[in-house]
């Protein structure tokens, strides 16, 4: 499960590609968390631009990172989600959760 991670001062961006399912989620989670724990960013951006499939395991992945960043007093953001992936995210109200956080923290 490929993920390219870009670390800038206060921001970590994870460019995820391929299929996010239960099989792939564990490795993805490990790689993203490693980067976050090394860099302590204020913002973790998850980029879904090259994701071709996602099921509820992807929601679990996003929610888990949401909690991790909240514990570090930062927040997550999501970008470039294709239509089908947006449809799965909406099931969990993830977009609303993230924009509420953005308002709250203003970062």
């Amino acid at each position: 499960m490929p993920v390219d991670i870009d670390i800038e001062e206060t921001c970590v961006t994870a460019y995820i590609s391929g299929e996010i399912d239960h099989h792939n989620a564990a490795q993805l989670r490990r790689k993203i968390d490693e980067a976050v724990e090394a860099a302590y960013p204020q913002i973790l951006i998850l980029d879904f631009g090259a994701v071709t499939f996602m099921d509820s395991s992807g929601i679990g992945l996003v929610m888990g990172r949401y909690k991790l960043m909240r514990d570090l007093c930062g927040r997550i953001d999501i970008q470039n989600a294709p239509r089908a992936i947006g449809k799965v995210m909406r099931m969990a109200g993830i977009e609303k959760l993230i924009s509420a956080e953005r308002e709250d923290k203003r970062i």
């Binding site: 989620a25 989670r29 099921d55 509820s56 395991s57 929601i59 679990g60 992945l61 929610m63 888990g64 909690k67 799965v88 099931m91 969990a92």
Partner: peptide, 14 residues
């Protein structure tokens, strides 16, 4: 483990 959302059946249904 906190890594599952509990939304599998909701997704199948919708």
């Amino acid at each position: 483990t906190g890594e599952r959302a509990g939304l599998g059946f909701s997704i199948m249904e919708s």
